[in-house]
Design a protein around this nucleic acid. Structure first.
Length: 207
DNA sequence: GAGTTCCA
DNA sequence: TGGG
């Protein structure tokens, strides 16, 4: 495995973690899942304003957001069907990068970024278990990703996450604010239409 | 509350 | 393009 870059304590970045063949295989898993659990448009709590990014999920629990709030639930908000199973390749990536003591992931959020979409600076803190790390895998066009500290006012830095890259938020960076400023169309030939899938693996409940 | 832009 |  490649050497990880530690952007800040607990934030590890593996550029090129997945080779092209592994990216293609994982993309096929994503497409299979989306055939059963189509992308949905989340909306903001209280206001109902839609996100620009569309989402789906793998695994027993999926992250959703609507006027009722942010939460994890076992079924698709539109179809009401259970989420597709977590692909073995994602479980293997978790085992390889999250650490031997991390309990298996329960949620595999699929975010689809088209050109012009973004994700504002936020913390991942809807999990009941905030000790397990969060693992992110990128497929397709490069994203301009921004990460700061555990407080919104903390300074931030920007990196470019390319197709096949892995990023882990653990320890002191588990609650780091982060977001996606934009994606850069035409930087990958993996998907076809311009855009980026981000797959985020999380443990939700205490083991 | 993960929505929204702008300035150097 | 980077920063905030």
């Amino acid at each position: 495995m490649q050497q990880a870059l530690e952007l800040q304590p607990g934030c590890l970045w593996w550029p090129g973690f997945l080779d092209r063949a592994a990216q293609e295989a994982l993309l096929a898993d994503v497409r299979t899942a989306l055939a059963a659990a189509p992308l949905f448009t989340p909306s903001m709590p209280r206001t109902g304003q839609p996100f620009s990014v569309r989402m789906s999920n793998f695994g027993p629990l999926g992250w959703v957001s609507d006027e009722a709030g942010y939460r994890y639930q076992s079924f698709h908000p539109d179809t009401r069907a259970p989420w597709p199973a977590m692909p073995e390749a994602l479980i293997a990536a978790w085992r390889a990068l999250a650490g031997d003591d991390a309990p298996p992931p329960e949620a595999g959020l699929i975010n689809w970024y088209e050109p012009g979409t973004r994700m504002g600076l936020h913390q991942d803190r809807d999990e009941r278990d905030l000790t397990a790390p969060v693992l992110s895998l990128s497929l397709g066009d490069t994203a301009v990703f921004r990460i700061g500290g555990a407080q919104r006012r903390d300074p931030t830095r920007s990196i470019r996450l390319a197709s096949g890259d892995a990023l882990l938020l653990s320890g002191p960076s588990r609650l780091a604010f982060h977001g996606v400023d934009r994606i850069i169309p035409g930087t990958s030939t993996l998907i076809g239409p311009p855009g980026r899938f981000n797959l985020t693996l999380r443990r939700v409940t205490p083991p």
